[in-house]
């Protein structure tokens, strides 16, 4: 039952994050906070010529917020800013429950968070990384 959400992919990214570290080469970074639950991350990106060539996050929070940020970075590193914004739109649609099956495929491991769409209280946890990303990219 709990594997609906706390599945292998999510637990693995929470326990063994790939992109949780400092990023000295960052060209921009921004702090994202969910004040009511204390999720707190700083997302850093290295953007060169409209492409996200590296990215990382540091911070603390629940498994959903942390794993979601890690999975997001896995997806967007190497992509152009436009592609990353497209993925953000898809992820948002998935959480809203308005995504098609073919679009869902593009989200790859982020599909692990699909069931958050049935858990209103956890939406902001799953969205934290993506919202912070949106802030960084729209600032550019």
């Amino acid at each position: 039952m709990e594997n609906d959400l706390y599945g292998e992919v999510l637990l693995d990214h929470n326990m063994h994050p790939v992109h949780k570290h400092a990023l000295p080469t960052a060209t921009c970074s921004h702090q994202g906070i969910n004040p009511s639950c204390g999720d707190d991350i700083v997302l850093s990106l290295e953007i060169d010529g409209g492409r996200i060539i590296n990215g990382s996050y540091v911070g603390s929070g629940c498994a959903i917020s942390q794993a979601s940020a890690d999975i997001m970075l896995e997806l967007i590193i190497g992509r152009t800013v436009d592609e990353a914004l497209h993925l953000k739109a898809l992820f948002t649609a998935m959480i809203d429950g308005s995504i098609t099956d073919s679009e869902l495929e593009e989200l790859d491991e982020a599909m692990a968070l699909q069931n958050v769409s049935h858990m209103p209280a956890r939406v902001k946890c799953a969205m934290l990384g993506w919202k912070t990303l949106g802030f960084l990219l729209n600032e550019k």
């Binding site: 039952m1 709990e2 959400l5 706390y6 009511s36 639950c37 204390g38 929070g61 629940c62 498994a63 959903i64 858990m119 956890r122 946890c125």
Partner: peptide, 19 residues
């Protein structure tokens, strides 16, 4: 994380507060 505690306990039909 406490939110994960509450979410997992909810799966077990136990209502606790987290935050």
């Amino acid at each position: 994380h406490p939110h994960d505690i509450a979410a997992l306990m909810d799966r077990d039909n136990i209502a606790v507060r987290a935050g």
